[in-house]
């Protein structure tokens, strides 16, 4: 597991990407609930059960630093992270979301999917999907 400073730095990259996409540089974390100009689900970033969860989309484009994690979000794809690590998330035909952590349940919003993942993890760190 990486140190606290590294983790914070990664979160900074994620939030930087989110803010850049919305086009409202300088927003604080608490203001990220605003609906993205491009549509889709409102961005969110919150502490939930001791975990830092963020997300947005499906039209968000969130670039994670490839040097840190080797992963980046694509345009048109929903993105969720838990403590800065991307969670594999898929949008179903009914608009609900399924993740690799809760593969047999669907959730109405990305935030609900992220919170469920945080609950299921019980403190464990997500592993980046291959």
């Amino acid at each position: 597991m990486q140190g606290e400073m590294t983790r914070r730095s990664l979160i900074g990259h994620v939030l930087g990407g989110l803010v850049g996409t919305v086009g409202v540089v300088g927003l604080g974390v608490n203001q990220l609930g605003a609906r993205a100009a491009t549509g889709g689900e409102p961005f969110f970033a919150e502490r939930y059960q001791g975990r830092w969860i963020t997300g947005g989309g499906p039209q968000a484009q969130v670039e994670l630093d490839r040097r840190d994690r080797g992963v980046h979000g694509h345009h048109g794809q929903p993105v969720v992270t838990v403590d800065g690590v991307p969670l594999h998330v898929m949008r179903g035909a009914d608009g609900r979301y399924v993740t690799s952590v809760n593969h047999y349940q669907s959730f109405p919003t990305l935030k609900a999917a992220a919170r469920a993942a945080a609950e299921s993890l019980r403190g464990a760190a997500l592993e980046v999907a291959a």
Partner: peptide, 25 residues
């Protein structure tokens, strides 16, 4: 499979929880 109706297969995965709830069930 359980995406519609009373939910059979999916519900059992969730009831067991832990690894059974994941894609690596």
């Amino acid at each position: 499979e359980g995406w519609r109706g009373p939910n059979l297969h999916n519900r059992v995965h969730v009831w067991v929880g832990g690894h059974m709830a994941t894609g690596a069930s």
